[in-house]
Design a protein around this nucleic acid. Structure first.
Lengths: 288, 288
DNA sequence: ATACAAATTGACTAATTAGTCATATCGTAT
DNA sequence: ATACGATATGACTAATTAGTCAATTTGTAT
């Protein structure tokens, strides 16, 4: 990432945190970061593209800080304690990002942002669940969803407190406190029926996934149509290859936009495919 | 409240929940509620005034639904269970409001909204604390802040779940489950030192109050700069008077916006003061 | 029916916005 | 020094916005 991109992202974060996304203009961002409006558009395709870059930039950063401890050889509880500590610290370090995030939780302007946020939330849940399973074993198993929810609740409540007053609290003490609270919860769960049963949650996530992957379904239809059009054309070989790459990319859990964009651009000089190309570009929020 | 005001509020809530506050235009709100733009301004002074009306309308509604149970003669635990149930139900009933709230956490654009939100959050904390004190007595006393935080965390995590899938869960069961989890936490807290001690929290709330007046500090700097610029000018007398009035108004606990606005407008015809004027106007959300 | 006030309208203004593009400056290789 | 591509600029456009106001409709009292 270029130095200026970083400068823009940091200026934007700062402004978004205080004013919110929709209320912050590009003009303000470029003034804050000391560049011109024209230059902004050299680095980011649009205002939305900047938002996505910000989200990815920080999520990556946070994730890396947690993964550091993945390869240390520690007992599960100590490992999780380290990771939770890293999570708290990184979030406090990037205060503005968290405030922005909590201010406009999701900012679902376009599908890409929605999907990104949904995936990240799901990943966080799974991270909690895996850690709890490793610590408490099968006694926790039927309660993993509930435990993850409650842990997430603890985390959110206390991060809020820390954001107001970083110095006042020792993160490592807080993490140990939270883990002991989880111990209490585990004790109390003996003989309890879970609220968020695996069955219910699977059902819920199916529904939600279906909602978020609705586009995916749409795209598949579009690709089928394109296949038909292409098959009726001469020298269709190149198009077929592009289409196959496109299809396999879209089916991945985290499709890489540049690949999609590149493949779409291969259809540029074929007017018959224009509408299809544009339809896909729209869904992925790619510039046409 | 007039029927039309209600119609406007409900249309606005609906749109804010899906599009966010800043991204929703007055035009959309009046189209949705079937009135004209002119009529909107008969009922609400401005877009911000509508937001405040919405917040007050729903907070009142929620509060009333909880207070119903205040005068029933029940043991504290049963009473709190009923109140928590009412809280969950009312929030689900007014889904859109909660989504709006969580989407742009109240959009602290202007001081009035910020203060309102801060107060409401504080009140919620105190409600939890009082209920917990009534249920668990002095054993809970040193842990009331922590317990309230954790309870709030539970509430937030589970309300999120309910918003996705209302039908899948029985609220009364959930509330009993949460209360039993609080029992476990109480058990585990024997011999524990609280994280959020009364001392720290008192300190924090003092600071937080100061935080809400942080702008005040920025403005003071701006005023100092203005003073210097003015002192180097001819016929500076009028400007000095305006500046003094401005300064004393800002230092009041609840500065009156019209006074500030009026004084600022006195600097209108002096280009050298433009940036300063705009900076102050921005902080107070005054039209430039 | 008439008069008059209250309620309502939507075309209008001035300001602001995201994004574009012709022009200018910079850096570097020869 | 020259040339040339990369980087950067900010005036510009077209669209959208909150808020206004003269003109019209509606309601009511006599």
């Amino acid at each position: 990432m270029k130095e200026k991109e970083k400068a823009i992202i940091e200026a934007a974060i700062k402004l978004y945190a205080t004013k919110g996304f929709a209320a912050t203009s590009i003009q303000e961002i470029v003034s804050e970061s000391g560049i011109s409006k024209g230059a902004f558009y050299l680095y980011f395709k649009s205002k939305d593209a900047l938002l996505i870059a910000i989200l990815e930039y920080y999520f990556d950063h946070i994730q890396k800080n947690i993964e550091i401890h993945d390869h240390e050889n520690l007992p599960p509880r100590e490992k999780f304690a380290k990771q939770l500590t890293a999570l708290f610290s990184t979030m406090i370090e990037h205060k503005e990002f968290i405030i922005m995030q909590s201010r406009e939780q999701a900012i679902p302007l376009n599908e890409e942002v929605k999907t990104l946020m949904f995936r990240k939330h799901y990943e966080a849940q799974k991270f909690y669940q895996n850690s709890l399973r490793a610590i408490y074993g099968e006694i926790a198993e039927p309660h993993l969803w509930d435990l993850a929810f409650m842990l997430e609740g603890f985390f959110n409540s206390y991060i809020r407190l820390l954001l107001f007053n970083e110095e006042g609290f020792r993160i490592s003490e807080l993490v140990e406190y939270i883990l002991r609270r989880m111990d209490s919860l585990i004790d109390g769960l003996k003989g309890e029926e879970p609220i968020a049963t695996e069955e219910k949650m699977e059902d819920l996530f199916k529904k939600t996934k279906a909602f978020f992957l609705a586009n995916n379904h749409d795209i598949k239809l579009v690709i089928e149509k394109m296949k038909k059009v292409i098959s009726g054309m001469e020298n269709s070989e190149d198009f077929n290859i592009s289409l196959e790459v496109l299809q396999s990319e879209i089916e991945k859990e985290t499709p890489r936009l540049p690949v999609i964009q590149g493949m779409l651009s291969n259809f540029r000089n074929e007017p018959k495919l224009d509408t299809y190309r544009e339809e896909i570009a729209k869904i992925y929020n790619i510039k046409r």
